[in-house]
Design a protein around this nucleic acid. Sequence first.
DNA 1: AACATTAATCGTATAATTGCAATAAACAAA
DNA 2: TTTGTTTATTGCAATTATACGATTAATGTT
Lengths: 109, 109
Amino acid sequence: MGLAKTEMFTDEQNEIALFAKVFGHPARVSILQHLFKINACVCGDLVNEIGLAQPTISQHLKELKLLGLIKGNVEGTSVCYCIDTANWSKMKRVMLQFLDQDVSKTDCC
Amino acid sequence: MGLAKTEMFTDEQNEIALFAKVFGHPARVSILQHLFKINACVCGDLVNEIGLAQPTISQHLKELKLLGLIKGNVEGTSVCYCIDTANWSKMKRVMLQFLDQDVSKTDCC
DNA sequence: AACATTAATCGTATAATTGCAATAAACAAA
DNA sequence: TTTGTTTATTGCAATTATACGATTAATGTT
């Protein structure tokens, strides 16, 4: 069917999956790493940095923006994108809670 | 195209994306949380726990196994699945390095 | 051997994702 | 106003992901 049955999972599970899904493409990982490195960025830089076409980058930026992980300010004809630090911290808390589950007792087989 | 151009990204970026992708579905998040909680599990339990059909669960388990995050031991007619703690820790290290990027200086716009 | 139980695989339908050319939109500069 | 620059949107094709019925495979039970 290709459709995740989100209604049968908890809000927490769906939230983790949504965040993880946006990290599930190397272009978006690359964009985020670049934004962290540069501390300020216009989309044109990203198109040159990564080898993807401008509409493709724009689409990936849109998805990151939709989840609130980045924000963009219009500056003339270009747009300045950067990490939304508050939301990034919130996301990190959710993901860490999932990743940091106690591993010490689970090796059973 | 529906195909990620992995060759234009670093190994690290592709690795992060692969791990994230497997967490990008609430069913797999749910399976992993259940395995952590129970410390041992047969597939039948998961089919009852989660509301998905047996072939669907089996498919999700296969993907988790492919990345090495879980391992399964055959015990009679059933299979005991559990977290592969060593690989989980390796994955955690990779993901934490990505998530823990310094957020203090990036609020630029 | 015949049957039951459990999980994996196959086949297939449907939906989501990815990528980009073409175009539109917004703004600056001449 | 016309032209150039930059980003967003549209439309489409190709690929991947999700889900499950039907079947197979493997093992245990009688």
